[in-house]
Amino acid sequence: MSFIIANHLTRQYDLSDPWIVRMLTSNKRKQLTAVDDVSFSIDKGTTYALVGESGSGKSTIAKMVVGLLAPSAGAITFDGKMINDETISKADRQRLRRRIQMVFQSPYASLNPRWAVGDILKEPIRAFGLFDSRADQDKRVNELLDQVGLSARDANKYPHEFSGGQRQRISIARALSSQPDVIICDEPTSALDVSVQAQVLNLLKTLQKEFSLTYLFISHDLAVVSTMANKIGVLNEGKLVEEAVPSQLFAKPENPYTKMLIDAVPDFGKV
């Protein structure tokens, strides 16, 4: 059964000049369509990857799925409920938020530099009211740190005391702290070194198995995507140009853009 369904998602940005300038120059309104009628669905416990180059609209889709951005048209359904429904109650909205979390691209900007790691991890626990007592919260933080391969001692440290890969682990722990069903991974390894990238990708896979998580994995890197995804959607200029399972996509891509992307990936075999 489809866990997340995106239906004819469209998002436009208004790039028009201010009203007064338009009046004086008689320019028309300018609209940029970042996401253009994109539909896809993700099964529970699987990874769906959106691949595209810069400006393809992949990050905009990620923001719409987590609810940071409202779609101009179309809708997202999660576990049978509409995410971008204006009419749902505050409590229901908060319940939805708990179930969909995100891991961000930058290991530097995604953690508040003034907060100790323990506090960063406790914030979602408190916001969703998951554990009431301080002792339980501390226990949960230690458990989370352990799950992402850090030690309980790290709870008192600040983000600058960690390497890029370790920060990304903290970011993953934060996403896990609300016990979500879905994690949106927005280029989670593109700022990391290769050997660390492999660690983080493996961690994501392990966690997926352990907690039967559903991933929406956003990336520009087809090679990375091929190691992660059950299903891949290729985005070009806001449109979903092809969608297939990896074996089919890499063996016989149908869209010329997909073909070009695959050919452009540097490959060890092509020396």
Partner: peptide, 20 residues
Amino acid sequence: STPQIDASSFEKMLYQIPGS
């Protein structure tokens, strides 16, 4: 540990160097 396009690799773990 460098990921390569491999249609079946999503079932496997990548090789990883421990530590940093």
